[in-house]
């Protein structure tokens, strides 16, 4: 990888046909190779984050200029800092589901609770159904010393915030849903 450089590129725009094609065509004309990519559409808005490796003589500015010509969507390009890391090994990944009446600050409260205990949120999805708000957080608990203590704190937190919180190991969901 010595003669390659890794860049992280993010795109945000109102959803329309062609965004992925425009951005990835621009990357390929510069000899960029995609390492990983995720895209999502939420309430009509498109967002994408991708990691690509470019030849050593391609600069961040060149990538920005090329993509600005290829697409009208807002693009941000960052050189990757340090080596790329994968999400935590599956041993310490848990899924926290949180269900409660919709109100301001729910995600903030839950994520602050996690942050204060050194817990990283690997993935987060939520949806509202009537006035019920449901959050699914994939958490890396490798920084937790005692799982029982964390569960006890979580239970107290659930009572004070009126949230129904359930913490289960990620493997359970894989076992019951993957073939």
């Amino acid at each position: 990888m010595a003669n390659k450089q890794i860049m992280v590129i993010s795109v945000m725009d109102r959803d329309r046909p062609g965004i992925v094609a425009e951005v990835t065509e621009g990357i390929s004309t510069l000899g960029g190779n995609l390492a990983d990519l995720r895209e999502s559409v939420l309430c009509g808005y498109f967002t994408m984050i991708l990691v690509a490796s470019f030849p050593a003589d391609v600069s961040v500015e060149t990538v920005e200029l090329t993509l600005a010509k290829e697409t009208s969507s807002r693009v941000s390009v960052e050189p990757a800092q340090g080596s790329l890391t994968e999400a935590a090994g599956s041993e310490e990944v848990y899924v926290l589901s949180a269900v409660g009446r919709d109100r301001v600050g729910l995600v903030a409260q839950v994520s602050r609770f996690c942050c204060n205990r050194g817990v990283n949120v690997l993935d987060l999805a939520s949806h509202v159904d009537a006035d019920q708000y449901t959050m699914m957080l994939q958490l890396d608990l490798s920084g937790i010393q005692c799982l029982e203590d964390f569960k006890t704190e979580l239970s107290t937190f659930g009572k004070t915030t009126g949230l129904n919180l359930v913490l289960q190991h990620n493997d359970i969901f894989r076992a019951t849903n993957e073939i």
Partner: peptide, 8 residues
């Protein structure tokens, strides 16, 4: 990630 409805 596994879908929310599957998790629930």
């Amino acid at each position: 990630m596994i879908r929310s409805d599957q998790i629930l």
